[in-house]
Structures are given as structure tokens and as C-alpha cells.
Design a protein around this nucleic acid. Sequence first.
DNA 1: GGAAAAACCTTCCGAATGGCTTGTTTCTCT
DNA 2: AGAGAAACAAGCCATTCGGAAGGTTTTTCC
Lengths: 201, 201
Amino acid sequence: MTLSVAPGKQQAKSLRARDLICDATIDLLVCKGYSDTSLNQVAATAGFSKGALQHHYPSKEDLIAATLNKLLARPFQPGRGKPASVDEALLQAWNKYINTPAYRALFEILNAARTDELLQTRIAAELLEWGRALDAQSLAQYAAVSGDDEEAVMLLNMTRSFLRGLLIQERYGSDGVKHLEYVKKWIALVAPLLTLRESSE
Amino acid sequence: MTLSVAPGKQQAKSLRARDLICDATIDLLVCKGYSDTSLNQVAATAGFSKGALQHHYPSKEDLIAATLNKLLARPFQPGRGKPASVDEALLQAWNKYINTPAYRALFEILNAARTDELLQTRIAAELLEWGRALDAQSLAQYAAVSGDDEEAVMLLNMTRSFLRGLLIQERYGSDGVKHLEYVKKWIALVAPLLTLRESSE
DNA sequence: GGAAAAACCTTCCGAATGGCTTGTTTCTCT
DNA sequence: AGAGAAACAAGCCATTCGGAAGGTTTTTCC
């Protein structure tokens, strides 16, 4: 008993608690949306009391910002499938990255920040940095056949816009199957303008 | 004094009140978003009391549904500019229809309905009808060069998805100028696959 | 002109939310 | 072992929202 355990035991517990809380937040964001994600429900879902949540994240903004950071830190390509073509790479991005609960949650936060001034300013820096990282990532993987790097970035950004727009439409319009059709159609349009860079790693 | 005025005077007043209320709702949706559009604020903005609003629209759902109907009834092409090319027509659709406060408001409602089950079921019928009308409208104005009508509908739907995705990104990413660039780039990609139908009217 | 009805306004209430305070348990350091 | 800090639990409070009840004014019909 007297042997002092690893000095980070409490810290580890804290980190784990925060992680669980963020996970609960993500779940609620996905199925309830931002405005219906209350701190009470987050606490209940995560299995903590309101006070515990209060301790870890003093305000809702803090909670959302932390959750956002967790979502943004998600690796871009979990499956290292090494796509052989642009078409395949873009389709993978849709299946493995965009069309996922995690991206829905991220989407909810972005969507909420659009009209919530405080949240907007709170996370603006992270989002800008994220945007830059995405552009860099795009350029690292793809190149425009025209050789114009800016065009490659534009095309990828347009792709993301399109996919985002698809996510919104989801529940009142077409279904998932129709979406996949649309995604493939778009890829067929864009892919001829892009090439895969030789991965230097 | 005794001359009885038009029997519809009260009705006209009521209609005007409802119109003002819907307009106020639209304004608030645009600048506050759906969840921050409260009945109190709607009443205040429209210049009516809370009870008056309650009289005209018994519930928030009723108010939103009425506002949605007003938004959906908006004519698709206010300016009869008779575009000469597909590019021009699509650009007009962006400038005159999508990139407008009215469409933002519509967007907010669609977005909210995504996670609000009750609102979702309440307006599902209108939205479905709207979707069909949009498809018909698309086919009336455009045709695919391949001759496949389904392809034309797909391309137009994809364009709408893209533009919607652009609307979301707006406040945390690029600015309006950048958006126009993206829109034009998109049009450049899609326009070659479409042709304008001879307007039969 | 007077009654009935519609439109309108004031006021109130229950429920929920976000944030905070107080008290208890668990861990850490010496 | 014991003091102090961190983590956690439970409850409370001010605010706000949506909704409804009651009374008042205006319009319509006879």
C-alpha cells in the first residue's frame, strides 16, 4: 500500500475522464445536433455527474472546443490501403473519413459555430490551422494535371464542399445509396484533373 | 362611417400580420440560426405581442412550416434575363437564388429539421414535393448532352449540394470572393455536360 | 345600434438549460 | 501517517423558452 504508484495515476484518470466525456459529446452531437446537446445529457451519457463535467470543462464552449480538437486530431487516413488511383483515393476519403459519425459531429460543431458568435471566435484559430493542414495534406497527396498547385487545392476544397452539402441533404432527400452514386459521379468529373503524387514516405 | 368597408378587411389585416411575422422569422433565421430564433424575438421583431403570434401560429412548428412554405413559393427566377448559355444560367441561379438571405433562411430550416424529429415529419411532405418540383424545373430548363435525363437531374442536384456545402463553410473559411471563384470553377466543370433547352413558352 | 366573432395584447406558468456552490471521496507528496 | 490538492457528486439559482389563460379592442353581421 505504501508503495506509491505511478505519479501520473490521477492524471491518467483525469485524461480518461475527459476522453469519455468528449466521446459522449460526439455521440450526442451526431444524434441530437448541437443545440440539443445539453451539458446534463453529456454528463449522463458519459456516466459522470454534472459537477465532474463542470470540473473538467468549466463551460460548454470549453467542452466543445476540446471535442473539436479531438475530432480534428483524427488521422486522415486510418486504413493505409495505398490507393492505386485518384478515383480510389477520393472514394476512400468519402467512405473512411467523411461518411463517418466523427465527421458528422465535426460538422455539427462547424454548423453551430456559423451562428454562435462566441463559439465562432473561440475555435476560429483551430479551424484556420485545420484548413491550412488540409490544404497541405491535399498537396502532399494530389497534384493537378495542369501542374497548378492552386488548382489542386481548389478541386479538393470543392470536393469537400460537395460532400458536406451531401451530408446535409441526407435526411430529407435521397438515401445513402443515392449518395454513393452522386459521390462516384463527382469523382468521375474531378479525377481526370488530378494525379496522385508519389508518396515520398 | 356606417358604410361597411370591404368584408375582407379583417382578413387582409390578418394576412398582412402573418406575412410580417414570417418575414421577421426569416430575418432571425438568417442572422441567429434556427435554435436561437425564439418566439419572443420573432414577436418583438415583427412588432407584435407574444399573444398575437400565438394566435396566428399556435406552435413554433406551425410558424416554421408557414415560413418554409413562403420560402419554397419563392419564384425560381425573379429576373427574366434569359441566359444565353448554361454557364450564365447556373451563375444566375447562384447569384439570384442561392446566395440570398431567403435561401439562407430556407437552409436553416432544412438544417434544423435534420435533427429535429418533429419538425422533420411536419415538413417532410412539402420538402418531397419541392424536390420533385426542382427536378421537373431542372429538366424543363436543362438537358444532358448525353441525352440522359436522369444525368441532367443528377448534375443539377450535385450542383445544389455543392452550393449548399459552400454556404456552410462561409463564415469560418474563405470569403465571398473566394466562393465566387469556386462557383465558377464548378460551373466550368459541369456546364460542358449540359445544354439549355429551347424554352417552349 | 348591438351582439357575436375574430384579432390582438398582457400576464403568467412549467420545464429545461447553463453555470455555480457546497460537501465528500480519492489521490499525491513529504 | 497526515496535510493538501485534485476529482467527483449533488443540489441550487438565475435565466429563458415555449405555451396557455384571461381580458380588451376591432370587425362583421343582423
